[in-house]
């Protein structure tokens, strides 16, 4: 799959096993929602955290339970810690969310290609996140805001199931008050305590300010949400080659050896998880691919 995304995956030397997790100690644990926590990890034994690119993921392991792929949700410019936001969605991820400070998790990675942020320089940037799609986009936002002057207008649309399902709320509040980006938050349904928007992220696109032909879009969230958003942006005139999205598939090995994450000719773990809409548009319309 042709890709201009970055890759920093360390394939491992001849003597190293690509399957061996490294121990990381949970330093802090932030409860995001009823089923989601953010964990700040520090490498055990004074090692450094491997450099990562926004959009990459790690295999995160709980001793005796197993490992699952989790996107990195922290700041790429903070090399002292590794941040993962995990939602309890199965036996392993549930065990991960219950890991307490002081306990040790295993980590191997980073894997996959990251968001090609350099392609957005001197362009308008539209970031659309749905639900747990925000954590994989947060490193991109940190990086973007660290060099804000390189980009033109920045629009963020963040959708969630309900107000109580919003994650990274502190960051969301900070971004909201910044003068150099616009943020719209929308939920699928809400009670009267919610003063924000209700509806799909696609319904917020008309209110976003960007010049479609000079826009780069980054999408992450449920597949249907990304498909509809990509279609909507494309209809407005955003080039399909400028729309990037992050895919999710069953993964076991994360290095292209186990076969699980195949999506057409792509290994999502290795050729993705970030793909260019123009390259994968056709695969989106094939059922059960």
């Amino acid at each position: 799959m042709a890709s201009e995304t970055h890759s920093a995956t360390s394939a491992g030397s001849a003597t190293e096993s690509p399957f061996t997790p490294e121990p990381y100690v949970v330093e802090r644990r932030v409860v995001e929602t009823a089923d989601t926590v953010t964990m700040v990890l520090k490498p055990a034994g004074g090692r450094g955290v491997p450099a990562f690119l926004p959009g990459q993921f790690n295999m995160v392991y709980r001793f005796g339970v197993g490992e699952v792929p989790i996107s990195i949700s922290g700041d790429p410019n903070r090399p002292d810690e590794l941040v993962h936001t995990v939602r309890s969605a199965g036996k392993i991820s549930d065990a991960l969310t219950k890991t307490l400070p002081g306990e040790t998790l295993g980590v191997r990675g980073p894997y996959g290609v990251g968001w090609p942020l350099q392609r957005a320089e001197h362009q308008d940037v539209v970031i659309v996140a749905g639900g747990l799609g925000l954590p994989p986009l947060r490193p991109l936002l940190y990086e973007l805001l660290a060099h804000r002057d390189r980009y033109e207008r920045v629009e963020i649309i963040y959708g969630a199931r309900s107000p109580k399902d919003l994650v990274h709320y502190e960051d969301v509040q900070k971004w909201r008050t910044r003068g150099d980006l616009r943020l719209q938050v929308t939920v699928d349904a809400a009670g009267r305590e919610w003063y924000g928007d209700v509806g799909l992220v696609t319904a917020r696109i008309p209110d976003a300010r960007f010049d479609p032909p000079r826009t780069v879009a980054f999408l992450c969230g449920p597949e249907i949400m990304m498909r509809l958003t990509a279609q909507a942006l494309s209809t407005l005139g955003v080039p399909e080659a400028s729309i990037w999205l992050s895919m999710e598939r069953n993964m076991k090995c994360a290095v292209g050896l186990c076969g699980h994450c195949q999506w057409g000719p792509a290994f999502v773990c290795r050729d993705g998880p970030v793909f260019r809409y123009a390259d994968v548009k056709r695969m989106f319309s094939v059922r059960e691919l």
Binding site: D35, R87, S88, A89, G130, G131, L132, G159, A160, R161, D165, D188, A189, G199, L200, T202, A203, G221, P222, I224, M225, L228
Partner: peptide, 17 residues
């Protein structure tokens, strides 16, 4: 049409586990 489509996607509860 848009609102119908929105409603349809909303009932899918795409953010649900």
């Amino acid at each position: 049409g848009d609102r119908l489509e929105n409603a349809r996607v909303q009932i899918l509860d795409i953010h649900g586990v």
